[in-house]
Design a binder for these strands. Structure first.
Length: 382
DNA sequence: AATATATGCAAAG
DNA sequence: TTTGCCTATATTT
């Protein structure tokens, strides 16, 4: 269920935790055995997200060595703030050419159910960490650390569980020394194993090894990605022009990865509400100023999502709904930041059908459109 | 134990 | 427009 923000977050995590390393690549489940054999022993030199697509570049081990290539606008593997340094890391300069003829790319797409699970050696990454489905992350538990009375905000602390005290939390050993990765859990399609970290991929819609040319063909079909805005220039104008000449509804255009990459069902519904745009209005009948506002808002919302790991679109003054009885539930993947918001106050319309609109009080509507649930307020969105 | 659900997408009809 | 697929988890029987 990840939207683009999740995939960018994954890219950063893979870059930081495995970038620059020679990896063992396997397919414990077996369904990716051939592809894994192609990548096994190669070096992870770049990790890139575009919309919901995740690309990992694997260079031959004899290729020029260096840190993972810097994707424009993203941090490279040297940004390891808050994590322990890894001994023996190769520091030689000169990233390999990601388009080089001997490069192989791993293309993955999480689809509805996919997830990456990360497990690290003590002192390298002290928590098991998964992104994507399932909602409850494997080996992780969230606890509310602070929930001030009268405040809708709470701090959430993410702790590892289920992995045993020998593996996690003991700072006694040197980082990664003597570390063995845990046995694969569930249907692990692909496993990327570094010296101190393992990344397991389950349930992807796509997991394949492709050439640079094939990778280029995939990205050429994708529209501009709000999280990557600024790399190419004119992304906003591209989106506005493309949407503005279409007879397809703006609600469908926002879900079309060739029109705008990375938007999913939640960002679609929420951005349309925030812009006051009727999802059923044809793109060519949406004023360009509204289309531009949609794009600009998605840049902010999705970058926030990539930073915090959670989709929260409500403004603080609109999070005044009644607290549900029982224990506080917060949006997952919050990284323990104060940005945590009760799950039922994170959205304006998504999954709020039948409930009163936060702005006008009229009931939020639900309609199935192109196989997906569309939520909107017919009063606020024109 | 069976069923419902999910932030997706492409192929088939 | 409908179907099929990939998987783990919460809910219901």
């Amino acid at each position: 269920m990840p939207e683009g923000h999740t995939v960018h977050r994954l890219a950063r995590t893979l870059r930081e935790l495995l970038g620059g390393e020679r990896l063992r690549v396997t397919s414990p489940q077996g369904r990716f055995a051939d592809g894994a054999a192609l990548l096994d022993g190669r070096r992870l030199v770049a990790v890139e997200a575009w919309g919901k697509q995740l690309f990992c570049a694997f260079a031959p081990d004899d290729a020029p060595r260096g840190r993972a290539a810097r994707a424009p606008g993203s941090s490279d593997v040297s940004s390891r703030a808050g994590r322990g340094a890894v001994p023996g890391r190769d520091d030689s300069p000169g990233p390999p050419d990601p388009a080089g003829a001997d490069m192989l790319w791993l293309r993955t797409h999480l689809g509805l159910y996919g997830a990456w699970t990360f497990t690290g050696a003590p002192g390298v990454a002290d928590v098991a960490h998964a992104i994507g489905a399932p909602r409850k992350r494997i080996g992780e538990r969230e606890t509310v650390v602070r929930a001030p009375a009268g405040s809708s905000d709470a701090e959430v602390h993410v702790t590892a569980d289920d992995l045993g005290s020998d593996e996690l939390g003991s700072g006694a050993r040197r980082p990664g020394e003597g570390w063995e990765p845990p046995a694969p859990r569930g249907q692990v399609r692909a496993r990327l194993l570094g010296r101190h970290m393992v990344a397991d991929l389950t349930g992807p819609a796509a997991c394949e090894v492709i050439t640079p040319a094939e990778k280029h063909a995939v990205t050429a079909r994708l529209g501009p990605d709000p999280i990557r805005e600024g790399e190419r220039g004119h992304d906003a104008e591209r989106f506005v022009a493309r949407a503005g000449r279409s007879r397809v509804t703006i609600g469908q255009l926002l879900m079309d990865q060739a029109v705008i990459a990375g938007v999913g069902n939640i960002y679609r519904a929420e951005a349309l509400f925030r812009a006051g745009v009727d999802p059923l209005r044809p793109g060519r009948e949406v004023p360009p100023s509204s289309a531009r506002a949609l794009w600009d808002d998605l840049v902010v919302l999705m970058r926030d999502g990539a930073r915090t790991g959670a989709i929260v679109t409500t403004r603080p003054e609109d999070r005044t709904g009644p607290q549900p009885p029982g224990r506080l539930r917060t949006r997952q993947n919050t990284d323990g930041t104060p940005d945590a918001v009760p799950a039922d106050q994170a959205f304006y319309v998504y999954h709020r059908d039948g409930l009163p609109c936060r702005a006008c009080g009229s009931p939020v509507l639900l309609k199935e459109l192109a196989g997906r649930n569309l939520f909107w307020c017919a009063t606020c969105q024109r």
